[in-house]
């Protein structure tokens, strides 16, 4: 048979893609974790988790980074680096990993959007059963 009977192969393909899609392994790992977190929230719909995976990473302007965001920073010079944002100053970004960069030296930043499921599938959002 050439058809797969469920969407798990597609989900694995997206996990594989995400694991090698970024120049920083720490950022790739966070993207993979986010895909898995989405799947655990909708365990009957691996296809939806796979579909959401394309929207997890988005490019934003450095000025709108927030404390707690997980970001991948591409400097104008040097290697990209990733980490959780500790603080965003007027002209400077500090990561919890103690790395920092002047906003003027940033070429682009990527962040992980943790609200993809809420945005795309609001009908699948339920309170946690405790």
């Amino acid at each position: 048979m050439s058809f797969s009977e469920n969407d798990f192969p597609g989900l694995i393909t997206q996990l594989e893609r995400a694991s090698g899609a970024y120049p920083d392994p720490g950022f790739s790992l966070e993207v993979v974790k986010e895909i898995i977190r989405i799947f655990k929230r909708v365990p009957l719909y691996p296809g939806i988790a796979a579909g959401c995976s394309f929207k997890i990473v988005k490019e934003i302007s450095p000025e709108i980074l927030k404390e707690g965001d997980f970001t991948l920073v591409f400097p104008k010079k040097g290697q990209p680096f990733s980490g959780k944002v500790k603080s965003v100053g007027k002209d400077r970004i500090d990561l919890a990993s103690k790395e920092n960069i002047k906003t003027a030296d940033v070429k682009k930043v990527l962040v992980i959007n943790k609200k993809v499921l809420e945005e795309d599938w609001p009908t699948l959002i339920f309170p946690e059963v405790k």
């Binding site: 909708v42 365990p43 009957l44 699948l124 339920f126 309170p127 059963v129």
Partner: peptide, 13 residues
């Protein structure tokens, strides 16, 4: 595999 509350509302999976 789905959850339904006692009044019939969907409660997840």
């Amino acid at each position: 595999s789905n959850r339904t509350d006692f009044s019939g509302r969907e409660m997840g999976f």
